[in-house]
Structures are given as C-alpha cells and as structure tokens.
C-alpha cells in the first residue's frame, strides 16, 4: 500500500484521489470516535485539573492548588507507592512466568490445544467475575484456600485483611489473570523464530539450554519489549480487580488503594472532579515518562532480527 503510494505520487490520478477519499471515509468513525471520546475529554480533564469543579457549579481556576494538596495527602502518596510496588512485582513476574510457560507450550505434544486454552481462559473472563471468585477463595473463615491449609495443619492467613500480605494476594490474582495474554504474544514470537538457527546450532553441537539463552531469548526480545510496555501501562492503571476485591469496606482500601482508585474516589464518590483530574494528569505524566524511558533503554537489550 505505502509502496504504491510512493510510486503514484508525481501525478495523482482522479481515481487515486477517489480511493483516498474512501480511505478517509472508512477511518472516519474511529478517528471521530477517538477525538470525541478520548482526545477531547483528555484535554478537558487537563484543563479541569487546575480548577475546583464539583460537577455542578461552574469550574473555578485555582492554579496548582490541586497538585500541592495531592503531594501533601498521605493517601495519595500511599496509592503512588502501592501502584509502583504492584507494577514492579506483577509485571516481571507475569512476563517471566509467561515466557517459561510459552516455551513449554511451544512443544509438539498431544492435547496442546487444551493446555493453551486453559492458560488463556482467565484472560477472557471478566475481571469482576475473577475478583468475586477469588474473594471467596481468600475468605478467612470459609474460603477454599484456608480450608485446604487447615486440612494440612498449616497457618491460615487473613489473605486480604493482613495489611502485610493484602497487596501480594491481589498481585497473585492479577498475574494469574494477565499471564495468558502474555503467553499468546510470546508464543507468537517464538513461532516467528526461524528453525534454521536451531538447525545450525544443532550442527555446531550447542546444548538445548545454550540454544535457549543464545537464540530463543535474544530473538524474543522484541516481543518481550512489547509485552513489558503494554503490561506496565495496564498495571499502572489497575482498578477493576482492586475495586471488586475491596468491596464496600473502606478499611481494606488503605493497603490496596491505587492511583486510579483515587481518581474514582475523588471524582465519582466525592464529586471533586478538578482534584480527580489532577490525579489523572499525574498518572498520565508518570506513564508517559516510564514509557519514554523504556524506549530509550531498549537499545541496550532488544535485538531486532536483521
């Protein structure tokens, strides 16, 4: 498509122009939708972050007051720390697990489709359903997990109520939920690696382990890079799972609150839209910086197959 465009550039025929017109027409719904429902609200939210707006009275400009108030608020600092810990633990864990499982699933064994489906099932399940079911599993008195631990005479922790392990309990669920998606991407990456490399290594007498670290992993790095970028962006925005697992008890909120939870709480529970917008804007900045940093850093470890 792009090649033919370059060729035709000197004299654009009537027919070509018509074709371009059709192209614009077909992307119009998405572009208009993106503009109306993403770009405009995002710009509006940026503007609102400098105001005190409660959703009813006209917004009043208060400069940087929202940001100043934010950095002085304990619960915001807490949500920032929680979000970073959540991301730093869950993403590497999910990617490492996914890589291992994907390599295992890349073998030619009977019933492989069943195994692949099993790992992908949590991905197609709604986070709300996942949260509800895990909440029951984690129930201290009547949960399945503690029931089994009880049979084995092991300690039965209060999975969500002990502030020291609450975040870890949720991370486990999140990793379980997202690992399938990573597996699919990495599996596709694995299958894109040409057999010829392995044949050559085989001839030179390289062991399987050696092949893994010198062929498979390096050639997988572009896929891993993509998985890391998308994984970090979505885990910095984690909300629905946490929202469901907290339920309506605010006491669980403190060890588990994340940045997006703060946006929801300020904006939709307390109707402080300006304050919520300021939080959303800070989160956007954070994601932007982390992503830019990752792109700059990729030269160090990502190998593009030449």
């Amino acid at each position: 498509m792009s090649d033919s465009n370059v060729l035709m550039k000197p004299k654009r025929s009537r027919r070509k122009r018509k074709e371009a017109m059709w192209a614009y027409l077909f992307i119009a719904p998405v572009v208009i939708g993106l503009f109306l429902f993403y770009l405009m609200p995002a710009l509006a939210s940026f503007g609102l972050s400098f105001t005190s707006w409660n959703g009813i009275n006209p917004p009043e400009f208060i400069g940087l007051d929202n940001l100043i108030r934010l950095v002085q608020t304990d619960s915001f600092i807490r949500s920032m720390v929680n979000t970073l810990v959540f991301t730093l633990v869950s993403v590497p864990l999910a990617v490492m697990l996914a890589t291992g499982i994907a390599i295992l699933l890349n073998q030619k064994i009977k019933g492989m489709i069943v195994y692949r489906t099993l790992y992908f099932l949590p991905v197609v399940t709604m986070p709300v359903a996942v949260g509800m079911v895990w909440k029951w599993l984690y129930n201290t008195d009547y949960g399945l997990l503690n029931y089994i631990l009880g049979l084995l005479h092991l300690p039965q922790p209060a999975w969500l109520f002990n502030p020291n392990i609450a975040l870890i309990s949720v991370i486990v669920v999140y990793v379980w939920m997202t690992v399938g998606n990573n597996i699919i991407l990495i599996l596709a990456g694995l299958q894109g690696i040409s057999e010829t490399y392995y044949e050559a290594a085989e001839m030179d007498g390289a062991s399987k382990l050696k092949q893994l670290f010198t062929i498979t992993i390096p050639l997988l790095t572009p896929t891993l890079f993509f998985v890391f970028i998308t994984g970090i962006i979505s885990s910095l925005q984690v909300f629905d799972l946490i929202f469901i697992m907290i339920g309506d008890s605010h006491v669980l909120l403190e060890p588990l609150r994340t940045l997006v939870y703060g946006v929801y709480e300020s904006g939709f529970e307390y109707s402080q839209m300006g304050y919520a917008s300021a939080q959303a804007f800070l989160l956007f900045l954070m994601i932007l910086l982390i992503t830019i940093f990752q792109f700059a850093f990729q030269k160090k470890w990502v190998h593009y197959d030449g």
């Binding site: 109520f161 502030p163 008890s249 605010h250 006491v251 909120l253 403190e254 529970e269």
Partner: peptide, 14 residues
C-alpha cells in the same frame, strides 16, 4: 468513609 475505615482498622488491629 473516614469513620468506618478508622474504626474498622482499629478493630482489625491496625
């Protein structure tokens, strides 16, 4: 919200 989080937190031993 603050009242419930604080009081329940005390009962949970926080």
């Amino acid at each position: 919200d603050i009242e419930q989080a604080e009081i329940q937190g005390a009962f949970l031993g926080y």
